[in-house]
């Protein structure tokens, strides 16, 4: 790691001030992505602003929606019986992120803010039409992810919570990278307000909704509806672990498996 100033924020406002006054500040939540990046000297921030202690960014609120505080860990989401009762697909998704130790530290806010193309939460954010609340505004989930590691967040903006509508039905299926255990592809299929939505992560530069799969499933959520369906692999990621073509195939297979869970 390069040297930096570690600043522990005591409020969202103070965090934003610290960031605004830093030469090159970054926010630190759980640190599951940022700290490895710092350790490898791939980033050299002047200030690391730890928002991890901010109580008002924690917690879970399950009512008409599932509202998850930005600092809520994956483990806490996975373990919450309230979340499981309301939105089991999200519990399943959280339970499959990283490994146990990562889930004990990693947070939903950190995950979403990072827009890692292989992160799990983004599939749920776009599929369920979640709202990303920040210290400045609320952003529709479907508009949130812009590109590889690029989101709608402005400089210094802090995610405070992510709010998911409760769908009639939803399920998540993930095909993990055998080495890193990130998603090679992850697919969430949901029925929200009578509309079938399919959120895909891992396949492209950032999470997206699959028009092809949504069209195929519009007539009904059945595995058979996906028979013979294929999706274009044109802009998909291609690496050592999976070609774009294989990813495109896996997206359909994972969609089938998610739909099968709904039956």
């Amino acid at each position: 790691m390069y040297q930096f100033n570690y600043r522990k924020a005591s409020s969202v406002e103070q965090a934003a001030d610290l960031r605004a006054n830093a030469d090159d500040g970054v926010y630190l939540a759980g640190g599951m992505t940022l700290i490895p990046t710092l350790k490898q000297r791939l980033a050299a921030p002047s200030d690391v602003i730890d928002v991890g202690g901010l109580d008002d960014l924690g917690g879970l609120d399950v009512g008409a929606t599932v509202r998850i505080g930005a600092l809520t860990t994956h483990a806490d989401v996975a373990a919450s019986s309230e979340v499981r009762n309301a939105l089991a697909a999200l519990s399943d998704l959280a339970e499959g992120i990283g490994d146990a130790h990562v889930r004990n530290r990693g947070t939903i806010g950190g995950s979403v803010a990072n827009s890692d193309p292989a992160a799990d939460y983004p599939a749920a954010v776009v599929a369920l039409g979640a709202t990303v609340h920040t210290n400045r505004r609320s952003i529709a989930g479907v508009d949130f992810f812009r590109d590889l590691f690029e989101t709608a967040l402005e400089e210094g903006e802090i995610i405070t919570s992510v709010e998911f509508p409760i769908p009639a039905r939803a399920a998540y299926a993930k095909f993990p990278n055998p080495a890193s255990r990130y998603a090679i592809v992850g697919v969430m299929v949901a029925e929200v307000d009578g509309t079938v939505c399919v959120g895909v992560t891992g396949a492209g530069p950032c999470a997206f909704r699959s028009a092809e799969l949504e069209a195929a499933l519009a007539g009904g959520l059945s595995v058979a509806a996906l028979d013979g369906v294929s999706i274009p692999s044109g802009n998909f990621n291609s690496d050592l672990h999976a070609s774009a073509e294989y990813r495109a195939h896996l997206v359909v297979v994972m969609a089938r498996r998610a739909v099968a869970q709904l039956a």
């Binding site: 570690y6 522990k8 630190l28 640190g31 599951m32 700290i35 490895p36 350790k39 690391v48 730890d50 991890g52 483990a75 146990a100 130790h101 990562v102 004990n104 530290r105």
Partner: peptide, 18 residues
Amino acid sequence: VVHMDGRAVKSCTVLAGQ
């Protein structure tokens, strides 16, 4: 891996400040 406040964490990925 150590336990921090009762949960297993990777101590190589926790800053002392945290």
